[in-house]
Design a protein around this nucleic acid. Structure first.
Lengths: 216, 216
DNA sequence: CATTTTTAGTGATTTACATCACAAAAAATG
DNA sequence: CATTTTTTGTGATGTAAATCACTAAAAATG
């Protein structure tokens, strides 16, 4: 996505970007920080999350391969509304705001694509909002597993190709660790999933989908 | 916002737009409908909402004066993810998708502004998500009242310049009618607000804000 | 490799909120 | 203007999920 621009502009990008190596657990930016630029995830996985109190958080999304980070700080508000933390070692490309803005002005196709990307993110965000408002934890966990499966694919052994801590899974589903733990146990008993350590294998996608669709 | 384009393009807009009169309660489009164009609210108030089951819904936002509607259907997905219903009689301007897309291609400044608008909507949406996940109903109602006050201003008598049914207020706060009703009663007792029919006056904005900020 | 720190696992208890089940008032409708 | 329909007001009851309060296992760290 960083490479969605005019060919003529590429040298300028190369000159203005800064590649950063990040380590597992490293905070890329924090909500409340002043916005100075945008980031692109070159390698690794980054969680985008909103904190709440001392130890509660809600994971908004996971950013990988080429995804833009920190764009929510664009426009009037010049502080980040969310935080970004690396879940594994990776490489992040940083572009400062003035240059990014001129990039947008020059590469209108890029702006157009970015706009479309935002529209789809908005859709996703609103879907999640409704889920939080009206779906049971079990449904939300089912939804979370399916989303993870869709975004990250699966390994040779069939397990979802990302290993989250139970706490992160809970934050992604918008529930507490304990409740998610219990729900996972239920799902195990019902043979919908199989776990081993942090690995999770989806056995019965259909039934999981059913859980996300039911009325209450 | 519909008038954010190049002057040269205005005649084209005038030729392509269709003005629709809508009545209170009229559905402008429904989630699941095929996307054929975008709408702008010229006059009146429109609620943008997601349905859930037979009688549950979550109100995402209220659109007024010049706001765009239905843009979430842009891009790959060609069905509306949300519904839009008029809350009062008003005038809606409709522009079909092909023309809207060419407008975006020609008016790059407009596209840029639209992108910024989406970024801010995304921010707002994610704030609401976190609220739904971690805030009490009381906090969410407080937040809802403040948002309404900020968006619609107040009348001469100090009441919020929009009259919602209790059910709509509940759907906006993401809770049930009964719970919101009780919460409003508490707020009345604590002298944070004053009501008369559907009118709501905010007496103590500070304390309402406190409610939205507290930990649990 | 011993020890601090983090993550996982699990029951008991509490509570915020939804659900149910009504009555009364207000608004819409023929 | 009488009557159906919608919105409002309010208690009683149920329950999903948070909170609390621990033990056990893994990982990280010096």
């Amino acid at each position: 996505m960083c490479r969605n621009c005019l060919k003529q502009w590429q040298p300028a990008i190369a000159a203005n970007k800064v590649n950063l190596k990040v380590k597992r657990g490293e905070v890329i930016f924090n909500e409340g920080d002043e916005v100075r630029g945008v980031y692109f995830v070159y390698d690794g996985v980054v969680k985008v999350h909103k904190k709440w109190g001392a130890d509660k958080e809600l994971i908004i999304r996971f950013a990988t391969g080429g995804a833009i980070l920190g764009h929510r700080g664009l426009g009037s508000n010049n502080i980040y509304p969310i935080s970004a933390t690396a879940l594994e070692d990776g490489i992040i490309c940083y572009i400062d705001l003035p240059f990014f803005e001129s990039t947008l002005k020059v590469n209108t196709d890029f702006t157009y694509n970015l706009m479309l990307f935002f529209a789809s993110e908005l859709q996703e965000s609103e879907r999640k909002m409704r889920n939080l408002a009206h779906m049971s934890v079990k449904g939300r966990v089912a939804q979370a597993l399916i989303s993870l499966r869709d975004q990250f694919g699966k390994k040779e052994d069939g397990s979802i190709n990302i290993e989250l801590s139970r706490q992160d899974l809970a934050s992604y589903a918008g529930a507490t660790y304990e409740t998610v733990f219990r729900v996972l146990n239920e799902m195990l008993k019902e043979n919908l999933i199989k776990t081993s350590g942090k690995k999770i294998i989806i056995n019965n996608r259909e039934k999981l989908l059913d859980l996300t669709a039911q009325e209450s």
